[in-house]
Design a protein around this nucleic acid. Structure first.
Length: 490
RNA sequence: GGUCGGAUGGCCGAGAGGCUAGGCACAGGUCUGCAAAACCUUCUACACCGGUUCGAAUCCGGUUCCGACCUCCA
């Protein structure tokens, strides 16, 4: 494909990506609710949309990337009678809600930074945009599509549905929702206040003991979950913007409600493209805190979890995520992670090999064919697995050339080097993790390698083996190559 | 129960009417004091039953199994 195509959940079709304004892209992505340590599932979205953002920038778009932090507003919804998620956690830990939010916001950002995710241009917090949310709620009320009851405000789904489609994004039929509404599962707090069980909260009245609360025209309270994204995306990207992204589990009710809120307020679906990534599963099941099968990112990086056979590096995780298409589920397993780890190392080595290739007078391989294939794959709804397959083809070419089995001229060698730089590093964001940043250690290791080389030259194998074995016991592996030895942490 | 999506070789995962996905593992080879590593080569699969077609993993119908959403969720 010669132009970027994206699957639009709203239309259920793959469409040519066209921007509202020439050369500019407004991209809003739903960020995490920061009430616990980030797990594997939290990290897929940031990586997927980081690659989208990088690719858009590669295509010379100026991207305004907004990713929010939800630090207020989620209702627990079950036995806790609408208690705010953040507040609940805070009570357990005996700290301020904002302290909890800050702790996990920092943890989240640190984890994805390690994975090479570029920071968004704007990272708004829900708690910092209460005024905007109140204004938006007021506008929806002014439009006659929301009502206040006893200090809370609810969105009037039935009134809205008279003039707009409700349920299109998530493929839901309102009649079915109404029919299913009587089910036993719907015992939400405040249900008796609603005109219709499908109405959702825009503003919730807070009890006096509720720590997180703000003044509003309807009394002290706090905003509903869905309104924050509507208010913040509108503030920074306008009434209508190009791409709204998030996980598929947010389709309903979150994104459906966002569309309803924005439409009620501005008359428009806020996003031209709705892009959703699929879930990470473990043994075929969604990873979720409530299911107790979550592995935190920190546990993955340290290897400290019963399900983990070893630690996996941040780039291994990134590579693992990108080896699957973003709209498919991705099943976690040690075997799969280990396969990614090895494949990634092969790519890195090949990139290094490519940087040292010597040009031949004639040429036997057209590297630009690989480049074209990479572009076609990305344009086809971000098919990163195919881009990676092309990178492995490039690795093969680099290795063959290095072995003298394939001739490349200067132009093609240059193209090959650029291929790794542009497609692997810049666009997929896969960068080398340096084995040791410790210069002293590097120096010591080089000294030992030199001494061992001398021992080998003297056929003193007892000594050379001792050096290798003792380093191995320390977790430092020596590999003998054709052009000398190298080392790495196991 | 409703809505939607899946079932691909030992594992992970692309593709989508005829043409190699790719990675990992396995096997063979090159290299090597030994070992490891690295590199090259190889391995031909699409849940089941019907149908459409010159031709189906890919389209249609049915069956079985799995998952997601419908309630907070990346």
């Amino acid at each position: 494909m010669s132009a970027l195509h994206l699957y639009n959940t709203y239309t259920r079709r793959t469409e040519v990506f066209e921007t509202l304004l020439p050369g500019r892209v407004g991209l809003y992505v739903c960020g995490p609710t920061v009430y616990g340590p980030p797990h594997l599932g939290h990290v897929r979205g940031p990586v997927v949309f980081d690659v989208l953002r990088r690719y858009l920038e590669f295509l010379d778009f100026k991207v305004r990337h907004v990713r929010n932090i939800t630090d207020v507003g989620h209702l627990v919804g079950d036995v806790d009678e609408g208690e705010d998620k953040l507040q609940k956690q805070a009570r357990l830990e005996q700290v301020e809600p904002m302290e909890v939010a800050q702790t996990y916001t920092l943890a989240y950002n640190e984890m994805i930074r390690l994975m090479g995710v570029l920071p968004p241009g704007i990272e708004p917090r829900a708690s910092g945009h209460i005024i905007e949310q109140i204004e938006m709620i007021q506008a929806i009320m002014d439009a006659g599509l929301a009502y206040a009851v006893n200090g809370s405000v609810y969105f009037d789904v039935l009134a809205y549905a008279q003039h707009h489609e409700y349920g299109k994004l998530s493929g839901r039929v309102l009649e079915d929702l109404i029919a299913g509404a009587g089910n036993e599962a719907r015992e939400l707090e405040g249900q008796e206040e609603k005109r219709n069980p499908n109405d959702f909260a825009l503003w919730k009245k807070a009890d006096p003991e509720h720590i997180m609360q703000w003044s509003s025209p309807w009394g002290k309270g706090y905003p509903g979950w869905h309104i924050e994204c509507s208010a913040m995306s509108r503030k920074y990207l306008g009434d209508v913007f190009d791409i709204h992204g998030g996980g598929m589990d947010l389709l309903f009710p979150h994104h459906e409600s966002e569309i309803a809120q924005s439409t009620a307020c501005t008359g428009h679906n806020p996003a031209r493209f709705w892009v959703h990534h699929n879930m990470i599963t473990i043994n075929g099941q969604k990873m979720a805190k409530s299911l107790g099968n979550g592995i935190t990112v920190d546990e993955l990086f340290s290897g400290k979890h019963p399900l983990l056979q070893q630690a996996y590096s941040p780039m291994t995780l990134r590579f693992f995520i990108l080896q699957a298409h973003y709209r498919g589920t991705l099943d976690f397993s040690n075997e799969a992670l280990q396969a990614s780890e090895k494949g990634l190392q092969r790519l890195w080595k090949a990139a290094e090999t490519a940087s040292g290739l010597k040009a031949a007078a004639h040429n036997e391989y057209d590297v630009n064919a690989i480049v074209a294939a990479c572009a076609a794959a990305m344009n086809d709804d971000l098919n990163t697995p195919q881009v990676i397959a092309q990178l492995f083809e490039a690795a093969r070419v680099a290795n063959l050339c290095n072995d003298g089995k394939l001739a490349l001229d200067a132009a093609n060698i240059e193209a090959l080097q650029q291929l790794f730089k542009v497609w692997m590093e810049d666009i997929l964001g896969i960068r080398t993790e340096s084995a040791g940043d410790d210069q002293a250690l590097d120096g010591v290791m080089q000294m030992l390698l030199d001494m061992r080389a001398k021992a080998k030259a003297d056929k003193n194998y007892a000594l050379s083996d001792e050096i290798r074995n003792r380093l191995s016991a320390l977790g430092l592996v020596i590999r003998d190559g054709k052009d000398g030895s190298s080392w790495s942490r196991n």
